[in-house]
Design a protein around this nucleic acid. Structure first.
Lengths: 152, 152
DNA sequence: AAAAATAATTAGCCTAACCTAATTTTTTGT
DNA sequence: ACAAAAAATTAGGTTAGGCTAATTATTTTT
């Protein structure tokens, strides 16, 4: 009955996409979620049942779903993290393809403390465009010499 | 023969710990690895067999193990990432308990591009102690007002 | 050198998240 | 209205990475 204690990375991913679909299209069907996450519809159905059981959505077979309060709260928190990280990495000049991939990997593992730190940092960096230029420049230099490993 | 294409987060964790044990104690026994990763010895034995099969270590039952070239390369890459991230988050004033936890979660998901950007940023930040003070200050303020809330 | 303690291995399970194939329900086009 | 298409569900696998309990090797102590 209660939304359970801690949500896994997978749960967070689903909720994030569901919220996004709800806000952009007004609804989130199994087929849309599957396409968005690039997984099978069967897997989505399965997860929706679990999300319902855990109190993150209200789900009725074949009929559709709605985020609960708690589900929406989780989804919004993740979306906010995602946005913050996008903002931050964009500022640093990380190329968009790589950026999105990295964010999807790391967004489930950042504590409020770390997020707060990055938020502060991001805000501060925005006030110092010269500094940002320097940072982006330093990257180009190194990249051409060969950094840590092969590029992605 | 060849170390396989892509290493999972778990593989990377094991290799990182093995390298650390090797350098600090001179050897890495099953019991030590298990204690360090807080998992059972049985699981470690299992993974060691896999690491051997995939060419990351040379492993002889009951006798011990050595990192191969490829295993050591992976381990060093991860260790370097870990160090960089520690440096970065420390600079931002993220408390050490949280910091370590977050790093363990995210270090397996960062592309060379992102790492390079953070490296440049970290170097630049070190030259601007006043800026850092400001960032750390901003965090304290917010933290006392509320956990993770959006700003402008 | 034998017994006791410690370390390592094996065997057999478990769970989370995925998958495909088959089936059922809903929607759509004529 | 009803057949065809699309969407959703169920049933039954698979894989990674953990676990415990039982067994076997090795090391230490007496």
């Amino acid at each position: 009955m209660t939304a359970s204690s801690r949500s896994s990375a997978a749960v967070e991913d689903y909720l994030e996409r569901i919220l996004e679909l709800m806000t952009t299209k007004g609804y989130a069907r199994v087929v849309d979620i599957a396409a968005s996450l690039q997984i099978s519809q069967a897997s989505v159905t399965n997860m929706l049942q679990r999300l319902d059981a855990e109190g993150f959505i209200n789900y009725e077979k074949y009929r559709g779903l709605m985020l609960t309060e708690s589900g929406e709260a989780v989804a919004r928190a993740i979306a906010q993290r995602h946005e913050l990280l996008t903002d931050f990495l964009t500022l640093l000049g990380v190329p968009s393809e790589v950026r999105e991939h990295d964010i999807e990997g790391i967004e489930h593992h950042m504590s409020p403390s770390t997020l707060l730190a990055i938020e502060s940092l991001t805000m501060e960096l925005k006030k110092h465009p010269m500094l940002l230029k320097k940072i982006q420049g330093a990257q180009k230099k190194r990249r051409s010499r060969g950094p840590l490993r092969s590029e992605e």
